[in-house]
Amino acid sequence: MQTKAVLTVSDVDAILAAARAEAIANNWAVSIAVVDDGGHLLGLVRLDNAAALSAYICQEKARTAALGRRESKVYEDMINGGRVSFLSAPVLQGMLEGGVPVVVDGQTVGAVGVSGVKSDQDAQIAKAGIAALG
């Protein structure tokens, strides 16, 4: 039987705090979600003035990154490159940049999704959150 790391409540708190700090430092109103490797929500924060829809989109971006075990941008690029049939993929609804997997010892243990600003800025915030894990 294999074993792997899992995100703890402390890990989720650290990710959310660091991601929130990155967003606030740039004056970006976003929503940030952290999910486990199955795409289940572990933590969510919607900053002041973030659009209500961003709270839904960030969760889907995170879920897509966790289940796909890669950044959600990969799917966006694939679709933009002409593989539009991928839009019919089941479960993956957040195929926009801004979902980033959390990888520990080569295994995806969860993901962070951000929505509310430009997609590369969403990804920047997600990566800042993940960096808090060390």
Rank of each mutant, 00 (worst) to 15 (best):
83 R>L: 13
92 L>C: 04
102 V>M: 10
19 A>L: 10
52 A>N: 08
17 A>Q: 13
3 T>W: 11
18 A>Q: 06
93 Q>I: 11
89 A>E: 11
50 A>W: 03
110 G>R: 07
83 R>A: 13
134 G>Y: 01
103 V>R: 08
6 V>S: 11
98 G>T: 10
80 N>H: 13
34 V>R: 09
58 C>Q: 00
127 K>T: 02
21 A>G: 06
10 S>I: 02
129 G>R: 06
68 G>A: 14
94 G>T: 04
130 I>Y: 05
115 S>E: 03
14 A>M: 09
78 M>V: 08
64 T>K: 07
64 T>R: 09
59 Q>D: 02
69 R>P: 05
42 L>F: 04
99 G>D: 04
86 F>R: 01
133 L>A: 00
121 Q>L: 13
127 K>D: 01
94 G>D: 02
106 G>C: 13
128 A>P: 01
72 S>D: 07
55 A>T: 02
72 S>A: 12
3 T>I: 11
1 M>E: 10
38 G>K: 08
26 N>W: 01
44 L>Y: 00
112 V>R: 11
100 V>Y: 13
94 G>P: 12
111 A>T: 04
100 V>A: 13
39 G>E: 00
57 I>M: 09
76 E>L: 07
50 A>E: 00
109 V>W: 12
72 S>L: 03
104 V>E: 08
101 P>W: 05
44 L>W: 03
19 A>E: 05
27 N>V: 08
125 I>C: 08
94 G>V: 06
108 T>R: 04
57 I>Y: 06
53 L>S: 07
82 G>Q: 07
9 V>H: 13
14 A>T: 09
107 Q>H: 12
65 A>Q: 01
26 N>K: 15
106 G>M: 10
47 L>G: 02
10 S>N: 14
105 D>C: 08
42 L>V: 02
70 R>Q: 14
121 Q>S: 06
134 G>E: 06
25 A>R: 15
106 G>L: 08
59 Q>A: 04
24 I>L: 13
15 I>D: 00
88 S>R: 13
105 D>R: 11
84 V>G: 12
134 G>V: 02
114 V>Y: 08
40 H>R: 12
40 H>Q: 14
16 L>P: 07
67 L>M: 13
22 E>L: 01
27 N>M: 05
43 G>N: 00
84 V>I: 15
4 K>I: 11
